[in-house]
Design a protein around this nucleic acid. Structure first.
Lengths: 226, 226
DNA sequence: TAGATTGTTAATCGATTAACAATC
DNA sequence: TAGATTGTTAATCGATTAACAATC
């Protein structure tokens, strides 16, 4: 934030962005990609709001944090806005990733094609089970954990995805930090502790499931009451 | 909500709960489970807040929506509070689920052991690829899509998990609704439209990735500026 | 009792929304 | 021009936080 302000170019207003707004931007972006797919050149704040489940005014407000991209009386040019959003969200540069843990989830993530459109390229998996070292996931090798440090020496790694059993989460995070990881995407149901210079995003399916089950319970009770 | 009020028992205050509070409850719950694992009988609002990344006062406020479970000067009894939370979140009753789409992601979800502690039991997978029908995921059969209606006739299905390619998402959702699904957990990057009586929770890894990449970009720029 | 921590109130903070002048 | 939609202001709404009396 101080950084870009100092350099004076691109004004990403970095940290001045409300959290909920940031969480909605990817939905706007996805809506714009769809518009481009379908040949729709102009998208309205109404359309965008719908994609994120908020009123049109909210969508306009959110976008106003990044600048002025719309034309009053017309709407937003899908391509222009998509480019700006991609730029703002940091989706324009290619990113290299690895997956630690070549179990079912790790392999599923490594094989997931949806990440490529965000510029993410998963280049290798790591595991401790020697029987896996011959396998590949698509073109991606499964390498022994012991070679993790080596890999970091020889390759750029922007994002390290953790998909090991919960009990190993912290140990793996420690090894990754030691090897030089700067960002972790943690799919285990265990919070990991890392030094402040490392970014961690937790993706705990259990807590997400709990929310779904809560709503399920509410539905049940409504039905019972009828 | 009117329901439980009318019956006069358990006061879940259902919908009167702020969204952010609901999202934090599973984190408190997880923290309590850990405490129980480790033999820690009392947990403070300080501990709970930390687990969800909020101040202690926030944790107390959140819990106050459900009732009074703490002892001033002491803290919260881990077991008592865990039970109440499980009850409130609807984790106490067993839930049956199916997974539609037996690709890598579908199989990974079906094999994921973490769901069981929330009472969720995945009982079958469905796919259109005949070559998969002989396979099993653990003890779970992979069945043809054509038998979906049949399955719903013969089994209770509380939650239907969608793990098919994006282009098929809406068609699958339609078939599930037709078969009688009441709640969908959608792992495709495509929003699905369903009638209002069906609950949908979207789990789009792409939008989550976008948030991680945004933070990565911020870090990069800070470093560049040094 | 002294020390600790809850539950709740009241103040603050921040996000959402409605409304409208400006613009196409 | 008439109709539409943006960007922004100001009002509303809701969530967070600090502080403290009550309680153990």
């Amino acid at each position: 934030m101080q950084s870009s302000a100092r350099r004076g170019e691109r004004p990403p207003k970095a940290a001045g962005l409300p959290g909920p707004t940031l969480a909605r931007l990817p939905f706007y972006y996805r809506r714009l990609l769809r518009a481009l797919d379908e040949g729709q050149e102009i998208v309205s704040s109404e359309d965008l709001g719908q994609a994120a489940g908020v009123p049109a005014a909210q969508a306009r407000k959110d976008l106003s944090y990044l600048g002025e991209f719309g034309r009053p009386g017309v709407g937003y040019d899908a391509e222009v806005l998509a480019d700006h959003l991609a730029d703002f969200l940091g989706l324009t540069r290619d990113r290299a990733a690895i997956v630690v843990g070549a179990g079912r989830l790790g392999m599923a993530l490594a094989a997931y094609t949806g990440f490529a459109r965000y510029g993410l390229h998963i280049e290798a998996l790591f595991d401790i089970d020697p029987s896996k070292f011959k396998q590949r996931v698509g073109s991606k090798p499964i390498l022994p954990m012991s070679s993790l440090g080596d890999w970091f020496q020889k390759h750029r790694v922007d994002l390290s995805i953790i998909a090991v059993p919960a009990f190993a989460a912290q140990a793996v995070a420690d090894r990754l930090v030691e090897a030089g990881a700067r960002a972790l995407w943690n799919f285990t149901p265990r919070e990991v502790q890392v030094p402040p210079h490392v970014y961690v995003q937790n993706e705990d399916l259990g807590t997400r499931l709990a929310i779904a089950l809560y709503h399920l319970r509410l539905r049940d009770e409504e039905e019972e009451a009828e």
